[in-house]
Write a protein that binds this DNA or RNA. Structure first.
Lengths: 178, 178
DNA sequence: ATAAACATGTAACATGTTACATGATTAT
DNA sequence: ATAATCATGTAACATGTTACATGTTTAT
């Protein structure tokens, strides 16, 4: 069976412990969002599909009035997750509008420093968010490794923006930039 | 007027010189693809929209039998591009299936080293492609800066994969004990 | 009371990929 | 002749976001 990577986000989350769609969305927003986001519009329909495929199972635990459907992995779902983990990753996509603007900055060179600045600020914001997650959740094992990746990659990007910004200022060939 | 970033890819390409849809696709594949991809299915309809909006202009140059529509920026299109360049970048998205697999590797820990290895190989492949572009096109100015970003970022990622791989192999000390 | 958080879901929209259809020109 | 490249375009499909609709429970 061919599943989307987003389906594996769900399977992976449920491999830790049973969860509701709401739980999954909350976890995604605090963990994988930086390298794999997912919205309710994806999660709820996907939960239904996975349940129909027998990879997850609903344990309708409505605690009184508030309806809440908690799903758990079936043995088949766990096998599917492990099979996916054993394969090679295929998707790697980056969409960086800052880089795009910088690339075309020749049409308005004066805008380059502020583009670089905005990009740097973006990465700094992400670092702050990741550090918060780090402090709050004290992740361990693979989650911690991946979180460190996020922090270090964004730190690298901040440094690059600073270096590139300095380079832009350096060749001041009497053009009267600024 | 609200344009998609992909529309600005076209406007940016045309700001250098007039081009056909085919030209644009070829250039995208050799330049922006690493941080902003575009397919024919996006480019041709977008060219039509931009022409209808008066931001670009077709100069129907059919060289004999082979039909070829070359577009150039109008003054309005150039203004639109410059306006966009002056704003702050908004989109930054990463989709890294390798990181996702690593994140969930707890369900099959033995798969982690090969995931890391595949991710490293991916980044090495990209570096090789970017170096080829660098050697072939001798980019200058902002294009060169952005190309260097691509190479350096992927080098950083390769190093990270090596470091993380070494950590995985190292006996689990430092945690708990100590 | 009322705001925030919990909880599920759908519909409309936007974006993007792939395969297909068509045909001309150039290099081998 | 035939493969590669040039060249344009569409249709079907896949993916993903946003806004909306609905209602409960908990904290202030």
């Amino acid at each position: 069976m061919e599943l989307s990577p987003t389906a594996y986000v769900i399977l992976g989350m449920l491999s830790w412990s049973p969860k509701s769609g709401y739980d999954i969305k909350g976890l995604v927003d605090h963990t994988t969002r930086f390298f794999w986001a997912a919205s309710y519009g994806q999660i709820y329909p996907e939960l239904r599909r996975l349940a129909e495929a027998g990879l997850i199972e609903a344990k309708d635990t409505d605690t009184g009035g508030r309806r809440r459907t908690v799903y758990g992995l079936t043995p088949g779902g766990r096998a599917q997750l492990r099979e996916w983990l054993a394969g090679d990753p295929e998707v790697f996509e980056l969409r960086d509008e800052g880089l795009l603007r910088l690339f075309f900055a020749g049409a308005a060179p004066a805008t380059a420093p502020s583009t670089l600045d905005a990009k740097r600020r973006h990465h700094e914001t992400v670092i702050a968010q990741l550090r918060e997650i780090e402090a709050a959740g004290k992740p361990e094992g693979f989650a911690e490794i991946v979180l460190r990746y996020g922090i270090e990659m964004n730190e690298w990007a901040v440094e690059w923006c600073e270096r590139a910004g300095a380079e832009l200022e350096a060749p001041a060939k009497g053009k009267g930039g600024r």
